[in-house]
């Protein structure tokens, strides 16, 4: 099989060298494919993304183990200058809130042009022309006019398109999209996903899509990694996992997707919820972090780290085995 573009291998991130924020996270994504990372707030999705880009928001956060390989090269071995060269060229990132992610004081043309000129030694006029092409590629109408717009003159959807244009300016091998549509409304979400798919089809860029929305996973992802409290609890092909989740947490997430078929029988049933919340950093023991909220949990789950079980292309970290002690399916 082809080498993955991005391979995160046993990545651990600690806060003040003691509290584990990410614990032995392993992921990979291949050229032209999309990996979805899904989980609740606070499960470490965004931290994984920022760790890959080496943009962790505080000096108190340090990588305590593992490797992040981009085309085989471990990013953790690079010095700051070499890492800076990789950002925005071989690895790019877009963020959750396009309203605040663009600098309010500079024009669209200026901010996208900056990304182009970072990667190529070209003049302003040339950068402006390429910027217009990029804006067109991300579906902004009348790109020439948009060059001179300031962010506050654009809608959220258009701003996110500008962010995407900026990110793909350097033809990245991997694009990390951290909840790119969370701040946008649903119709705009569909458009942004379409832009990402078109871009991927044209360039073969691997995408890491971070989301809490199972619907986005089924729409976009080839593979999915489910994270809980800093660990990957289940990983595999998206359609297989959505159809038959193994880990009790994944099953909870999948069962929380509202389905029209549920309504067809007996009016709208109450939407299921997973009771409880993600444990705080200092409340995470050695055992399965999901145990306090898990309907199957017993003493062993609470005390000992669950084994990672493999089944074909899938893996799952649960004491109850691949099927969580039950046939594949919803709880």
């Amino acid at each position: 099989m082809q080498e993955p573009v991005l391979k995160v291998d046993g990545l651990s991130v600690a806060f003040r060298n003691s509290l584990a924020i990410l614990d032995d996270v392993s992921l990979e994504v291949h050229r032209g494919q999309t990996l979805g990372i899904v989980g609740e707030s606070g499960c470490g999705k965004s931290m994984t993304a920022l760790a890959i880009m080496r943009l962790m928001p505080s000096a108190a956060l340090t990588v305590s183990g593992g490797a992040i390989r981009l085309n085989g090269e471990n990013l953790l071995d690079l010095d700051d200058e070499a890492m800076r060269a990789i950002r925005g060229s071989r690895a790019a990132m877009i963020f959750q809130d396009p309203m605040t992610s663009l600098n309010p004081l500079f024009t669209v043309g200026n901010q996208v042009g900056e990304s182009i000129q970072k990667n190529r030694q070209i003049g302003r006029a040339e950068a402006r022309r390429i910027t217009a092409d990029l804006l067109k590629a991300v579906g902004l109408p009348d790109p020439e006019r948009h060059l001179d717009y300031y962010p506050h003159q654009l809608s959220g959807g258009k701003r996110q398109r500008v962010m995407i244009a900026m990110a793909i300016a350097g033809h990245p091998d991997v694009l990390i999209a951290d909840e790119p549509t969370t701040a946008l409304d649903v119709t705009v979400q569909a458009q942004i996903f379409q832009v990402l798919r078109d871009m991927q089809a044209a360039s073969g860029t691997a995408i890491v899509l971070i989301t809490h929305d199972m619907g986005a996973i089924s729409e976009m992802a080839d593979r999915v990694a489910v994270m809980y409290a800093g660990r990957v609890v289940e990983e595999g092909p998206a359609d297989a996992i959505l159809a038959a989740p193994s880990h009790p947490y994944t099953r909870g997430l999948v069962s929380c997707i509202p389905r029209v078929s549920d309504a067809a029988f007996d009016g709208w049933p109450e939407l299921p919820v997973i009771p409880g919340t993600v444990p705080d950093l200092d409340q995470r023991g050695e055992g399965c972090h999901f145990a306090p909220r898990c309907p199957l949990a017993d003493d062993r789950c609470a005390k000992r780290r669950p084994p990672v079980l493999h089944d074909g292309e899938r893996r799952c970290a649960c004491w109850y085995g691949m099927a969580g002690g039950q046939p594949h399916g919803r709880i």
């Binding site: 928001p57 925005g88 605040t100």
Partner: peptide, 17 residues
């Protein structure tokens, strides 16, 4: 701490910029 400075860092710009 703002989002757009994070964006600028993600773009791989020089610290001086």
């Amino acid at each position: 701490k703002s989002d757009y400075v994070r964006t600028a860092r993600a773009k791989g710009l020089r610290t001086s910029v």
